[in-house]
Design a protein around this nucleic acid. Structure first.
Length: 388
RNA sequence: GGGCAGGUACCGAAGCGGUCAAACGGGGCAGACUGUAAAUCUGCUGGCUCAGCCUUCAGAGGUUCGAAUCCUCUCCUGCCCA
């Protein structure tokens, strides 16, 4: 049993407290482990995975996972770590996101053994009287303890009242689902503690707080998030996933080793090699071994010692001779990479030498291209296509 | 409700009648160097049919040959007072 505690507390940021957790485990029943998520964006990424992997651990030990979809709270927006008010989402948007979210979450946790609940089920029906009663359970001073609020207040930035409701609601979720343990990122500490207070207020045994480190994004300093664009999505294509992981800094690697693939980082290994292992291993987890091997081979062909000719590249149809370069490239961006680029943007890429045909820079924006089958056109750092 | 200070490009922030598509910083992108890493250096960073033109400085009007800059009204935010 102390084994269990050690395992569960591994790679956590904050546990309050081990003793309480031990007490709960002694109860000799499956514990109810709560994780609340606000489906504000559809895709989940490696940052979410850190928490889901922890849930999986609990699950494997026979505990009951309670996944709360914050369909109601998502419409408010968690102000955690934010310096500005988040724009609200409609309920339809939230529900669409929720579906994608759970589908992806079940790549990690076992669907059969997971209880999924929506907090709209209780909040949407709550009469205003009850809302007031709920609000009476906490003080303004308590809420203002929170770092985000304090800071915004100090910086003379607005704090809207609905934002102050957020921790209260998240806390109330704990009462409703009767959780024994709540898991969250470090930025959730405050909210989870509110849950403890509310549970105590209802005469319940307070939940154990277990927070996990926030995974830094690819840029290495901000936390991984969709809106910052520094994320790796769980369902991204193998080559995409591989490439993104290869772009992280060496400093970040040990972090990713423990939080993403759960391995020890061997600092004597060549960094390049270590990173390839990280990338390969990650692809393996979310796709399969074959895809991972393939992604690696492909990467090496494209950027390493291998041959570009052997790499798997998206193919684009061969244009007529003397094709206007700008419009042709613009078309590839939209058709093949689903990216809107203005002509000015593409002109810039051309002038700066980003566009390369079989390794040769094409720097004249007015030039025309005459391509033949098998030519490799490089658009920017990450994107190349083959004429097919 | 009263007083004051503000709302500028992705963000922060200059500009306060013409030389403003708008300084500077951050971010982003590209090039060089590399390990498609980091650091560093360089360039770019509203749009277009690109030596020219078009649309921007909260919104709507107005003054002026000319407005991000002046005036009026509206909307929004912060601070202080009630």
């Amino acid at each position: 049993m102390s084994d269990q505690i050690t395992q569960l507390c591994q790679d956590t940021e904050h546990v309050h407290s081990r003793e309480e957790l031990a007490e709960k485990l002694k109860l000799d029943r499956p514990l109810r482990i709560k994780l609340g998520v606000d489906p504000t964006a559809p895709d989940i990424h490696l940052g979410h995975a850190v928490q889901l992997r922890k849930l999986r651990q609990f699950q494997d030990l026979g505990h009951q996972i309670v996944l709360i979809i914050g369909d109601f709270t998502a419409m408010i927006g968690d102000p955690s770590g934010r310096s500005v008010t988040r724009p609200p989402l409609t309920h339809e948007e939230v529900m669409v996101n929720a579906k994608t979210f759970t589908d992806q979450a079940f790549l990690i946790i076992d669907k059969e053994k997971t209880e999924v609940v929506y907090n709209g089920d209780w909040f949407a029906k709550m009469p205003f009287q009850e809302v007031i009663k709920l609000n009476a359970k906490v003080t303004m001073q308590q809420m203002l303890q929170r770092e985000d609020f304090k800071k915004r207040l100090a910086d003379k930035q607005e704090v809207r009242l609905h934002e102050i409701q957020y921790p209260i609601m998240q806390g109330w979720d704990s009462v409703v689902v009767n959780s024994d343990v709540e898991i969250g990122g470090t930025d959730q500490l405050f909210n989870i503690l509110v849950g403890r207070d509310l549970q105590k207020g209802e005469g319940m045994s307070p939940q154990v707080v277990l927070t996990l480190p926030l995974l830094e994004g690819l840029d290495g300093n901000k936390k991984m998030s969709k809106s910052l664009g520094n994320y790796v999505g769980l369902t991204e294509a193998p080559s995409e996933m591989f490439g993104k992981l290869m772009s992280i800094s060496d400093e970040l690697m040990p972090r990713y080793y423990s939080l993403v693939i759960g391995e020890d980082f061997d600092k004597d290994r060549h960094p390049m090699e270590a990173k390839k292992h990280l990338a390969q291993r990650t692809v393996e987890i979310y796709h399969d071994t074959e895809a991972a091997t393939q992604a690696r081979a492909d990467f090496e062909n494209k950027f390493g010692k291998g041959k570009v000719e052997d790499a798997e590249l998206p193919e684009v149809p061969c244009p007529p001779a003397e094709t206007q370069m700008l419009s042709y490239i613009s078309q590839i961006y939209t058709d093949t990479f689903d990216q809107m680029r203005s002509n000015a943007d593409i002109r810039r890429l051309v002038q700066q030498g980003s566009i390369q045909l079989n390794g040769e820079k094409q720097t004249d924006p007015k030039a025309t291209l005459t391509l033949k089958l098998g030519d490799v056109l490089k658009l920017d750092k990450k994107r190349m296509v083959r004429i097919g």
